[in-house]
Amino acid sequence: MDKLKQLAKELLSNNQVQIIVGYEEGTVGKARPAFISSPDQADTLIYDERCIHNLAVYLTQHKLPGNTKIAVIASFPVMKSIITLASEKQLDENFIKVIGISKDNNIIEFKDFADIERYINQQDLSFTPEEQALIDKIDAMSMEERWEYWQNEFSRCFKCYACRSACPMCYCTLCITDFNQPQWVSVPSHKLGNFEWHINRAMHLAGRCIGCDECSRACPLDLPINLLTKKLSMDIQKQFGYSAGQSLTEPYALSTYKPDDKETFIR
């Protein structure tokens, strides 16, 4: 990854960007997100199979002063997140440079977001057999079994909201669960509160989830909540032909009305 370090140094030295969001060596053998602001720090950048955090989450957190130009190291899920965020008008292209990394670890310097969109659509976008198998396992359960399964899983939740914090698509400044006038979602992490939170989270991400699995990876209790949003993505793809992270212009399936909708009730 010497080329990545070199590129980072160039971008910072000629002030094309002021911050690079990438990865560095963490503690106890982990990799972790890093913020590089000077060329001499660029040597700490790494990229390998441990670099799995979805860095797009940092693009909407407003931690950096306004007018800061950011470069972000983008694995495939990060690219898809950026396209979704851009399609939802959350990112200003003039302030974000995307340094893509292909599946075979080559650096791709994207000119603009449209360039990322083109690249994404050249890749295999189908769900992997492993993803499909996880969903099939839940689908094969009876209603009662499924209810039992999710009750068990949700009962363990203590509402630390790591799933929300780690998700690039959860960028609301006031999340529905923090809204208290009126109180939409029950706050305590009891049975009702946990069900309300996880169903809300899943529904708000329905078809917006790009499938990076960061939510369940961030969960300290290993709740398989990524399956909920993944299943909804599959359903929405099937019903509306819409998949998140693939188009800058196609409007989001669940907030769009088309006069030629195939369903007659809505016309």
């Binding site: 931690k63 630390c160 305590p188």
Partner: peptide, 25 residues
């Protein structure tokens, strides 16, 4: 704190963190 994403995982696994909220239901 630049990379901190602002979740409560650290506090909720901590054996000494005591912050709590009161809710009327």
């Amino acid at each position: 704190s630049m990379r901190c994403i602002g979740c409560g995982a650290c506090a909720y696994v901590c054996p000494t963190c005591t912050c709590f909220d009161l809710q009327d239901e």
